[in-house]
Amino acid sequence: MIERTPLLNIATHVILVFGLIVILVPIWLAFVAATHTLQTVNTAPVEYWPGDQLWVNLAAAWVQSDFGPKFLNSLFVATGVVIGKVTLACITAFALVFFNFRGRMLIFWMIFITLMLPLEVRIVPTYAVAANALTPFQTIMDWTGISWLITTLSGVEVALEWNLLNSYTGLILPLVATATGTFLYRQFFLTIPDELVEAARMDGAGPLRFLWDVLIPLSKTNIAALATIMFVYAWNQYLWPLLVVTDRANYGMVVVQLSDLIPDQLTTGGGTPTWHLAMAATLAVMLPPILIVILMQRWFVRGLINTDK
């Protein structure tokens, strides 16, 4: 900036360095665990400095978890979620903020409430829906008598079925069905000055043109931040892929593979947790989202996009 502020600058560095230490210590320990043998990791005292086993552990974990195809699956699903989410959240928030209709507060809350009941809590019925995504419509048609009507009129039995288990659609769609993105866009759209919309309308721009020409260019930083978050969110999904995919050879995702390296005390009664392999695998699994985060942050920070702003 323009002025000289030496004291404040020192304070800035002190604060930032302190923050960094707090943030990085846990990750450092996980990294160290990946570089030792199982014996070292499982015995106290905890190691604070890396050992020489990183590549050995990585190679072992890579083979044991069949990571090659799993990485492609994860990449595909995460990309699908990002595209779906960024698009869907944008158009939904746009319709909610810029259109005048009754019940838009109601619709906003309907979408918003989906934040409040996590998947862990409704896992069994959600699985049932994934086994046949058209169940809700079938049931409604059965209740309302539409099925009966169709059967009587045309003689065709109504049996809708769309099985999403073991498919990319089944992995992606439910992860898109949350409110975070919509809420973020809404908060951003609310800060758009009235004058801008008025001006666009004076120029005769319809809603879609306004969205495309004015709002989207203005939302770039938000889109980039949201896309980053969603990529990492989708990549690190654990519970949902674990349930929806039984055909892990073809549709397995990397993070789920991690769970095989850490046996659950409660469900299997123990076994050997191979922490060194688990952490090595974790490092490998973390790499793509970290790259995305590092690459994308160039987009949601100023300097590269709007140098002259």
Binding site: I23, L24, I27, A30, I229, V232, W235, N236, Y238, V255, L258, S259, I262, A278, M279, T282, V285, M286, P289, I290, I292, V293, I294, Q297
Partner: peptide, 10 residues
């Protein structure tokens, strides 16, 4: 920023 990418088990 990048610790955000750390998976829950780690």
């Amino acid at each position: 920023i990048w610790p955000y990418a750390v998976a829950a088990p780690a």
